[in-house]
């Protein structure tokens, strides 16, 4: 599988990551080697193979409303500051 500089740049952009010219060149070569190796999988016959489904009902807890009245206080305790019964979060922009 041929991997181009553009492939690396597009994937990096989708992942919201800044990648330098130098990194792009390294990744281009390494990804090409990796995906050529992964191509081995194409020789495996997977016709009719279905992905197994997880039986969620066996693992997920019952959907019960939260009744813990202390939850708000517990949440606020994890923040450094609160104002008018609200947790104060850090400024983003």
């Amino acid at each position: 599988m041929e991997i181009t500089k553009k492939d690396v740049e597009v994937a990096a952009k989708l992942a919201k990551m800044r990648v330098s010219e130098q990194e792009t060149a390294v990744y281009e070569a390494q990804l090409e080697a990796l995906f050529n190796w992964v191509k081995e999988l194409s020789s495996v016959n997977t016709d009719g193979v279905e992905l197994s489904n997880v039986n969620l009902s066996a693992h997920v807890r019952a959907d019960e409303p939260v009744t813990d009245e202390k939850r708000a206080a517990l949440l606020r305790a994890d923040f450094n500051a609160s104002l008018d019964d609200c947790a104060k979060v850090k400024k983003v922009l």
Binding site: A12, M17, Y27, V49
Partner: peptide, 28 residues
């Protein structure tokens, strides 16, 4: 960063079937 790029690339609509879905089926 490289692993994130590999994963993102494998999940793009162009490569999903040939890479990710194929790997999932071989895993089965």
């Amino acid at each position: 960063k490289k692993r994130i790029i590999i994963g993102t690339f494998a999940l793009t609509s162009k490569n999903y079937e040939e890479c990710f879905l194929k790997a999932m089926k071989v895993r089965e």
